[in-house]
Simulated assay, not measured.
Amino acid sequence: MNCISMNCIIVANGNLLFTPRIKRLLEEADLIVAADGGATHLKQMDIAPHVIIGDMDSIHPDTRCFFEKKGTPIILHPSRKNQTDTDLCVEFAVKKGATTVTMIGVTGHRLDHTLANIFLLRRLCTLGVESRIIDANNDIYLVTDHLKLEGKKGDLLSVLPVSDKVTGLTLTGLEYPLEDAAISMGSSLGISNYFKKSWVTISVLTGVLLVTKSRD
């Protein structure tokens, strides 16, 4: 069994706000992977990725040249491919042994890309890799068993089924707790709950649950 933890941050080319939290996460990362144009975000923060992966269709030429001069490895893929650049980065991180994956810059104006990136969390769940997406307003998780989150009293939290049904849904530490509930896809029952305590737990017996900790 591999007991060594590896914290990976994947930076894509979507919306990204340079908050102190984001900078701290990058500084603490064991592996930073840039998905194509995500390298531009890192250049603006004066942080070098360990590798840049993609078809190089969205990276600015100056950014590519900058990191090439620094000796940053670039793994080039053809533009006609069956995976998005972010998907390729997830695959790379898993092969490198990442035990935790955080994706930033993976939400934005393209809803198809945003949804595809959210559902990459499902694959990581299946592989036993802790994972999340962070943007300016949300921390996003997919839960297939159990999740514990820290927050402040009043922090918003919503849960949505993304499988036909979720059973055994139990929520603790929230203003509106649930115990052994069943909810179906399309239900808004889990929207706009909020932290009552500093730690909350979310658990399910079957199904897949989308969890968002949000900031208005």
Rank of each mutant, 00 (worst) to 15 (best):
C125E: 06
L124C: 05
D155G: 04
G151S: 05
L127M: 11
K153T: 12
L147G: 04
I134D: 09
I140S: 02
N138M: 05
V143P: 01
L127H: 09
R132V: 00
Y141A: 05
A136C: 07
A136L: 14
D145S: 14
T126E: 00
N137V: 09
D145I: 02
K153N: 11
S131N: 14
N138K: 10
R123M: 13
I140F: 07
E150R: 13
D145K: 14
S131H: 03
V129W: 03
I134T: 09
R123A: 13
I140A: 07
D139K: 09
L149I: 15
L147F: 12
I134K: 12
K152I: 04
I134M: 14
G154Q: 03
H146K: 11
A136P: 02
N137F: 13
K148I: 15
V129S: 06
R122H: 15
K153G: 05
R123I: 02
T144N: 15
K148L: 11
L147Q: 06
L124P: 01
E130G: 07
K148G: 07
K148Q: 15
D139G: 06
G151D: 04
I140N: 06
H146N: 10
H146D: 07
R123N: 12
E150W: 06
L149E: 08
L124Q: 04
L142R: 08
G128Q: 07
L149M: 13
D155P: 02
D135Q: 06
L124E: 05
G151T: 04
L142M: 05
D145T: 09
V129G: 02
N137C: 11
C125I: 01
R122F: 12
N137P: 01
L124D: 01
E130V: 10
V143C: 11
L124I: 02
Y141Q: 07
V129F: 03
L149G: 01
I134G: 05
R123E: 14
G154I: 00
R123V: 07
L127D: 08
T126P: 00
L149K: 08
I140R: 11
S131V: 07
